[in-house]
Nucleic acid binder design. Structure first.
Lengths: 113, 113
DNA sequence: TTCGAAGTTCGTGAAACATCGAACAAGGTA
DNA sequence: TACCTTGTTCGATGTTTCACGAACTTCGAA
């Protein structure tokens, strides 16, 4: 496992963010992370194969939406809420609000830890 | 030219809106329409073929983002700003703000009428 | 050192998408 | 009627995306 690349604040593009958030699974993941708490990779429950989940988390990471921290063989994911707000004020909250009202990605959850 | 289908307010989905707005050309078109004024199809200038522009306008229309009115052989396009606000409060403005600050779709313009 | 767990990467296939030019349909105009 | 303008649709092409299982890499535990 190589350490993942995270774009700088200034390298975050609107198009990439919009593209990343136009998928129900990814939007669901973001909703789960919306409380600001760091979550373990394995805690995330989505109705897709492990490799597919890895793919989606990569798209989010590459878009600058999440940050992945590695600790041993485990990964922990957080939402880059502050960064996104700095880059695109109000955008994330508007999207989260819309996603919540529509329950987009409601199938994504956390392990009943 | 058959009359275009426009989704009802309740049929507008966040995923479709996000998908439609994750393309620079479409986002540029929306920016051009953001002042609320109706624009003629032929007024819209984008660096793509006519058929491609037609395609993009269709995606926007199908997503419920724009409305196309037909008059004889011409079409006129407006942004469904009010509808979108009703459906997803604050979303369109947040996206428009972000798009403007990044000049996304800056290559789209209006004919120097 | 051997094993298992955690994620990533690879190879693949199916579907979606952006793009173009050509053909088309419908309405206006000569 | 014949022609032009306007915009849509069609068919083809190349790219991207999503999805899966299998193989791989790393690290920690036994």
């Amino acid at each position: 496992m190589k350490e993942a690349r995270h774009p700088e604040l200034t390298d975050i593009t609107l198009i990439e963010v919009m593209g990343a958030l136009s998928d129900p699974i990814r939007l669901g993941l973001v909703r789960v992370l919306a409380d600001g708490r760091e979550r373990g990779w394995g805690e995330l429950r989505a109705p897709v194969a492990k490799s597919t989940l890895s793919h989606h988390l990569r798209v989010l990471r590459d878009a600058g939406i999440t940050r992945t921290r590695q600790e041993g063989t485990r990964c922990y994911v957080t939402l880059r809420h502050r960064d996104l707000d700095a880059r695109f004020p109000g955008l994330l909250n508007a999207i989260l609000g819309a996603a919540t009202s529509d329950d987009v990605g409601g199938q994504i959850s956390l392990a009943s830890a």
